[in-house]
Simulated scan of single mutants.
Amino acid sequence: MTDKSTILDKALQLGLERGWEELRLHDIADALDIPLADIAQHFSQKDDLVDAWFDRADQHLLSIKAESDWLALPAERRIEEVIWRWLEALAPYRRVTGQMLLYKLEPGHIHLQIGGVLRISRTVQWLMEAADLKARHLHRIRQEIALSTVFVSTFVHWLTDSSVHQQSCRQSLKRKLAVGAKLNIWK
């Protein structure tokens, strides 16, 4: 049986060649010369590939080792680095990633949109953990709302940023985090 990672890699490659909208699970099975049943063992629907892609980015951001020099950085700098690390994991397939989001936002895909909100929440939780944010109670709620807003707006900006190395997006992220620091949101 073909493993989950191989199937995802082939889906990304085919998505880059054909576009995400055109990609079918059958195309992936044909390209890997495997039965659809092998794909179904790991992915019950096409959207599960999107979740696996974002799970891979989550794992990449979590690979930051929280050493003493990391923890000595200001919180806004740690947040910047973990968000950027997440985006870097997606960078080889940035165009396909944008197509995945458009696919989720189609009017007939309300079930995918609800899942997308939960997906954002899960990633934001990992961002908070990786950045070692320690707020509690009402301050944590405020922090989570602010970080969710910063994360989503940065992600959308990154998808459309044509500046060299997405410097426009990175500068925008720094400005947003600086405002949060002035408002004492990042603890």
Rank of each mutant, 00 (worst) to 15 (best):
A75M: 07
A57W: 03
H42G: 01
D47T: 08
E21N: 05
G116Q: 02
I28Q: 02
R95S: 14
D38N: 04
L62T: 07
K65I: 14
I120R: 00
H26W: 03
R122G: 07
H26G: 04
I39T: 02
Q59G: 14
W126K: 10
R56L: 13
L127K: 00
Q41E: 11
I83T: 06
H26K: 10
W126F: 12
R24K: 14
A29I: 00
F43Y: 14
M128A: 12
I114E: 08
D47N: 12
A52E: 13
W84Q: 12
A57F: 04
E81L: 15
L112V: 00
V124R: 00
L62M: 14
E22T: 06
D55N: 11
Q59I: 01
R56Y: 09
R24L: 10
H26Q: 12
L23T: 03
E22Q: 13
Q113E: 04
G108E: 12
A89D: 11
R94K: 15
I120L: 11
V96S: 06
I110Y: 09
T97D: 12
V117T: 04
A89M: 12
D48H: 09
I64R: 09
S121G: 11
R77I: 15
L127G: 02
I79R: 03
Y93V: 11
L25K: 04
I64P: 00
D69S: 15
W53M: 11
A31P: 00
W70D: 08
L32Y: 02
R85N: 13
R122H: 09
D30S: 03
T123E: 01
A31M: 00
V124E: 06
D69M: 06
L71P: 05
L25T: 04
D38F: 01
Q45Y: 03
Q41H: 12
Q99C: 09
L32C: 01
S121R: 05
L118T: 02
M128G: 04
W70I: 08
A52I: 05
L90G: 07
R78Y: 07
L102V: 09
L105G: 05
W53P: 00
R77Y: 11
E81D: 12
V117I: 08
E22D: 11
R94M: 12
Y103S: 11
Q113V: 03
Q41I: 04
T97E: 10
W53Q: 11
L62V: 03
E67Y: 07
I39P: 01
H60F: 10
L90A: 13
I39L: 14
K46N: 05
Q59N: 13
G116I: 02
V82Q: 08
L87S: 08
I114C: 01
Q41V: 06
I79H: 04
R24C: 03
V124H: 03
D48K: 08
A52K: 05
A89W: 06
K46A: 05
P74S: 07
R85A: 15
R77T: 15
E67C: 08
H109Q: 13
E21R: 06
E88Q: 15
A52W: 03
V124Y: 05
T97G: 08
H109Y: 09
R77A: 15
E76P: 02
I114G: 03
S68A: 15
E106V: 06
Q41G: 03
L25E: 04
W86C: 08
Y93S: 15
L118Q: 06
W86Y: 15
E80P: 00
W70E: 10
M100P: 05
R85D: 07
R119N: 10
H109I: 02
E21K: 07
A57R: 04
Y103D: 15
Q59L: 13
D69N: 12
H109F: 09
R56I: 01
D33H: 04
